[in-house]
């Protein structure tokens, strides 16, 4: 194993997950009570609705050293507040465009719809996303200062 590969092997990304209170957070909870295995790299922040996630939060997370950010809400049409996730979809799609344009890998940022009954799906998304971010390596572009 070369040094490079070893570094990649050891790298455990920090992922911030903004989950909506009504679907995704409950979905994550279900994944927990069902004892599903998924990487512990994700740090979950509960928000009342995915529409609450200001693009600023995502950028701040990156700035504070997050390697990936996951935003998850109710499926379109299922929002507890009727339309919050539609607003989130617009905002965050634009954010992903500008991340790509400035050369920050848009793969570090993901949005997903997870309902309260989709513990399986949540575990799957987190596993896949963690793999994806691990592949990209540490995020150093927006992160300010030295890590730790």
């Amino acid at each position: 194993m070369t040094g490079d590969e070893k570094a990649k092997e050891e790298f455990e990304p920090k992922i911030i997950g903004f989950l909506c209170n009504w679907c995704s957070y409950t979905g994550a909870d279900l994944a927990g009570v069902s004892r599903l295995q998924y990487p512990s790299n994700i740090r979950i922040i509960k928000v009342m609705c995915s529409g609450r996630v200001n693009p600023q939060f995502v950028l701040k997370a990156f700035q504070e050293g997050a390697d990936g950010v996951l935003v998850s809400g109710c499926h379109p049409g299922d929002c507890h507040y009727i339309e919050g996730n539609y607003h989130a979809r617009r905002k965050l799609a634009m954010l992903s465009d500008i991340l790509e344009f400035t050369g920050i890998e848009p793969e570090r940022f993901q949005m997903s719809w997870v309902s309260a009954s989709e513990g399986q799906k949540f575990a799957k998304i987190v596993t896949a996303f963690t793999e994806q971010v691990k592949e990209l390596g540490p995020q150093k572009k927006l992160a300010g200062g030295e890590d730790e």
């Binding site: 693009p55 600023q56 950028l59 700035q63 634009m94 500008i98 572009k141």
Partner: peptide, 15 residues
């Protein structure tokens, strides 16, 4: 880091 944050947030506010 801070400048980029500023410019990206500003751009998003004006999107």
């Amino acid at each position: 880091s801070n400048n980029m944050f500023y410019h990206l947030v500003r751009a998003m506010h004006l999107a």
